[in-house]
């Protein structure tokens, strides 16, 4: 067997093992799916009246793509927690004592988490439709938006995979990821319009890939008002392209780092 097919087979075996856990511990699935619903309803009904995006669309339409982006980024914590748990329980040592592909454990984990993200996007889209969100562009564009959300989430999974092999326990993961993920998602245009930020933060918001991901989704779903002012930063002018560049950069940097760290790791 060539190295590549070996890696693919092993990755698939590990991903299948991770997914079996959903079947055996359905509580996890419920938790993963309930939080996006909660976010949609919370923002739509609690803040919905108070926050005006200022571009003429209703807050819910503005909000839903932001919720999508935020949730898939938060979902990456799950990747880190899964890896940290495996490390703690010693199953990683079993894997590392096998003549399997050394990248398959992490690749399998990030792959199985794509399935989680597909499920949570599905649930969120349905909830969104119930509260008044609509796809106003073509279905092809909408599919592209979901695709972009999934590849971005996949890239962030690799960041959290690195965190997962670095931290000593599952408990640390949640705190560690908060430090990274909270600013990324909240200092973005996911929940509030860009011009509500003070100028100093605005540059960060404009180049924050969570913002450009949100912006790209809004454009692809047709949830923006063409009359509303748009940032003239290059990233916000070409949000999908910029987001894809970020995906590539994150993968190129973090996947090798995480795998190298995994290979050297020991309790």
């Amino acid at each position: 067997m060539t190295t590549l097919t070996r890696t693919l087979t092993d990755t698939q075996v590990v991903a299948k093992r991770n997914l079996l856990k959903i079947v055996r511990v359905p509580e996890i699935l419920v938790a993963v799916l309930i939080s996006p619903i909660m976010f949609v309803l919370l923002f739509a009904y609690v803040f919905g009246g108070a926050i005006d995006p200022g571009d003429g669309t209703s807050y819910r339409e503005f909000l839903i793509p932001g919720i999508f982006a935020q949730t898939v980024v938060f979902g990456a914590t799950f990747t880190g927690a899964g890896i940290a748990e495996d490390m703690q329980k010693g199953i990683i040592d079993r894997f590392r004592s096998l003549p399997m592909s050394q990248s398959a454990v992490l690749a399998g984990r990030t792959l199985s988490d794509v399935v989680y993200n597909v499920l949570s996007l599905l649930i969120m889209a349905l909830t969104g439709l119930l509260v008044g969100w609509r796809v106003r562009g073509s279905l092809l564009d909408a599919a592209a938006a979901f695709g972009l959300l999934l590849v971005f989430a996949y890239a962030v999974s690799w960041i959290m995979a690195l965190v997962g092999v670095l931290v000593p326990s599952v408990e640390v993961i949640n705190n560690a990821s908060f430090i990274v993920i909270m600013p990324l998602t909240f200092v973005s245009n996911a929940f509030v319009p860009l011009d509500s930020f003070p100028p100093a933060l605005r540059v960060f918001v404009e180049w924050n890939p969570v913002s450009t991901l949100t912006q790209a989704c809004r454009e692809l779903f047709g949830n923006t008002n063409p009359a509303a002012p748009v940032s003239d930063a290059w990233s916000m002018q070409n949000p999908a392209l910029y987001t894809l560049i970020c995906v590539v950069v994150i993968l190129v940097v973090f996947a090798p780092l995480a795998i190298a760290r995994y290979r050297r790791t020991s309790r």
């Binding site: 067997m1 070996r6 087979t9 092993d10 075996v13 299948k16 093992r17 079996l20 856990k21 055996r24 511990v25 329980k89 010693g90 199953i91 040592d93 079993r94 894997f95 004592s97 096998l98 003549p99 399997m100 398959a104």
Partner: peptide, 26 residues
Amino acid sequence: LSGQSAAVDENLTGAENLEMIGRLYG
């Protein structure tokens, strides 16, 4: 390798654990 350095996956069945390892041996 067996014992306290390694572990079984407690969410998988006995058969699934062994099949997974067989697959990972190629």
